[in-house]
Amino acid sequence: MKRLIVALAVLAVLPAPTTAQTDTRAAAREIVRKWQDAIVRVRVTLKLRMSMAGREMNSSDDSVDTVGTVIDPSGLTVLSLGALNPGATMNKIIGAASSGQDRPTLYSEPTDVKVRISDGRDLPAKIVLRDEDLDLAFLLPTAKLEKPLTAIDLADAGRPGLLDEVIVLSRLGRVGGWAPSAVLRNISAIIERPRTFYVAESDNNTSMGTPAFLPNGKVVGLLILRSVDPGRPSMMAMMGSEGLGLLPVILPAADVLEVAQQATAK
């Protein structure tokens, strides 16, 4: 890797680490080294439309950069569906604050998708499957690959316990020189119902669609944005994830893998 800048922010702010912490960080660095090429940037061009009471009010084009994870050497890449469909998230926020026919509705249609792989090449891609329920989108390159891509093995999965440390991989964008990045997080909650989700401490820099690992190298799952009905609209509901019905969580690897099988099915 030409310009490896591993962003381990924790190192900069904590006092001298204990032996256990040192071990975790060493393990984290090894995970970054092993899987960094599987973390890719995805550029999505969107057509955005806004309508109110059935009448189109405005339309425009825009593009977003996000992160994806390659999960098969064929280039099958998974990312948070929310990145492809920001209109749905915006509608959720608008819906949390207002109701009725005069509420604007936003629609976003992806018109172009490119996967930027670790060597800097852009691969045109298509969306092969979506899962609104689990906030997943699966992409496949449209052109034949010169060689298989590095892909994370979701079958080699582990289960963290409460307060266990996990390593969340990501990749910075243009400003960050496309460098791979990683953060250490603690599992702050485990949701059991209606399905298992792990909640990792998060900050505003956590990207959806990125994988989390245990220090032993086993993959935990993928960061997604869990969405539930926030209930009755209210201006106050817009304050915080509870009011919006949105929460970043780690979806277990097995669940991602199960849906991914549909993505590759003919």
Binding site: E109, P110, T111, I127, R130, D133, L136, A137, Q262
Partner: peptide, 14 residues
Amino acid sequence: GGSALDDPGREATK
């Protein structure tokens, strides 16, 4: 003449 995506991707069947 870049062509737009003509298929937004099917939904996972469950």
